[in-house]
Write a protein that binds this DNA or RNA. Sequence first.
DNA 1: CGCCCCAATGTGAACGCTAACATAGCGCCA
DNA 2: TGGCGCTATGTTAGCGTTCACATTGGGGCG
Lengths: 333, 333
Amino acid sequence: MWDVAQLAGVSHQTVSRVLHDSPSVRPATREKVLAAMKELDYRPNSAARALVTGRTRTIGVISFDTTLYGPASTLLGIERAAHDADYFIIIVSLRSFTRESVLAALDRLRDRGVDGIVAIAPLQTAYDALRDLPSGMPVVAAVAGPDEVPVAEVDQVAGAQLATRHLLGLGHRTVHHIAGPPDFLEARQRASGWRTALRDAGAPQPVMVTGDWSARSGYDLGRGLLEDPEVTAVFVANDHMALGLLRVLHERGRSIPGAVSVVGFDDIPEGAFFTPPLTTIRQDFDEIGRRSLALLLEAIDGGGRPPQRHLVVAPELVARQSTAPPPTTAEGP
Amino acid sequence: MWDVAQLAGVSHQTVSRVLHDSPSVRPATREKVLAAMKELDYRPNSAARALVTGRTRTIGVISFDTTLYGPASTLLGIERAAHDADYFIIIVSLRSFTRESVLAALDRLRDRGVDGIVAIAPLQTAYDALRDLPSGMPVVAAVAGPDEVPVAEVDQVAGAQLATRHLLGLGHRTVHHIAGPPDFLEARQRASGWRTALRDAGAPQPVMVTGDWSARSGYDLGRGLLEDPEVTAVFVANDHMALGLLRVLHERGRSIPGAVSVVGFDDIPEGAFFTPPLTTIRQDFDEIGRRSLALLLEAIDGGGRPPQRHLVVAPELVARQSTAPPPTTAEGP
DNA sequence: CGCCCCAATGTGAACGCTAACATAGCGCCA
DNA sequence: TGGCGCTATGTTAGCGTTCACATTGGGGCG
């Protein structure tokens, strides 16, 4: 910076002013400085700036498995939004779901001097940790979160109801459910949406089984579920598990949707090419990412704790070919 | 830091020494300092440290679409490895593939003072940009890369040969190929592996078609490909496109692998639950991420340009149920 | 018993920037 | 024509570290 100042024949402060588009620098002077900067290929040192301003223009993202479609898309949305706002994203991915690991991640990020944190970790434990975060650090949650923290989320309950009602509307007596792991808030909310939809319709409430989001678990649980010949409609808590279920159905030679209807959740891009193409609930992860970052930036600029806002994005039913009315009577494969 | 020093009755320098586990500080003193740190909940300021040391302990990752399985897993591998080495990861994802956008990303990262860069962007343009990066900044490529830059990669050619030979070995007269977009090095390498395998076996070399990695493009291209009744075996450049092809085959009522055999590439976790479970080539992305980071750290610690090393990881054939010998003669579904 | 050396600690400066205040120069009005 | 007030610029200090060097206090050796 000194060199630039010298070359331009001004003081370092003037250089700084040019950097910040300060209005009180004469066009001629600005030109000179700009020229000197280019000449020397000057690049401001962000560490020095951070040191004096106390802001790093960096935001931390805590994520639990960036390999999954949901978190990955959300992350991408956040990244894009951050980029547009001229912020950087630092990622910490959780290896385990314990309270300690979340706290450790939070700490690491704080030590790093991030200006704020977005948590894509829709887990109970994560939220407990977030809740009693020593304040001063703005935090928002993405995808799903507790009341205590601002969050941009999809209305999971509504999504599950959409799915359940769709199946009920087709004439199924009831709808079975393969849920996600119970420590995920989303899984619980979907289960609860499913349950209320059944109750509202006066339909019987079957026991629900819980998987771990993976296709494998959908497959394993599907095997058990299909022992019961009464099962004609299944709402699966995500598309991957739904794929597993589809697989079992094929193995058993039961037609989809002829014998059994299946609805997933997420709307992963591949869903449209499953056999059959999967009816599912679409969540706009990108939007979630975008909005959660907006919420966070608001909190950062606003200084203290932001308005305790929950932004909710509506899910949407994408009807494809894995759902149909139930088999009319006793059915032969 | 001053406060800690004061409370412990030592100088700030001694505090710094304790922070760095300097050997020349008496155990008693260290205890006092440690106690004072805890008491005051002291956290070293990373910006200040970065300012004076010139290192940020941050590495930048350029990625082109973190939603895809490959890049996402690689990213995860990098993150984990970085975490273990006590580095942070800053992400920049490319919106477009132009040379300018790559250069811009590189610049942004450099301005940020990252200690090094990993590029997960197996595109020709990306590499051209990497190649003439003003030196001084260590860069490695992950997944695939040009000779000029150190890279941790999977042997794509070998993988494609594995796939092709597997099909040939089953008795297919030849193997068709749905390739990835030609601006991806991986796509080109896979195509070339396929071609050499055919040539080595003296098999006819059909024209190849190219998609964009998506299931949709696999579907669309599959439609055209299947016009030709001679097609009994297809090697598809990734699992998602293979899924699309599977979909067409089902729609056409052609049995898999009875009528047509399909081999994918990547081994995404869902592949085992496709209908039928997909034979594919596994790439260990996690390992790639890990190794590329190791390469980078080596370059950083080593100071100047690292040994011009290419680390190659062997791919592996995962045989599942989408491949079988060709239909014996004229075949009826 | 005095000296030297080493281990343990302290001191000052520097890293590159921004914030706050100080100063110079100028036009304008009385 | 003197002074006021503005705009454009310069000066100084300080952000929280680490680095290089200076200082202190013992213990061992001659």
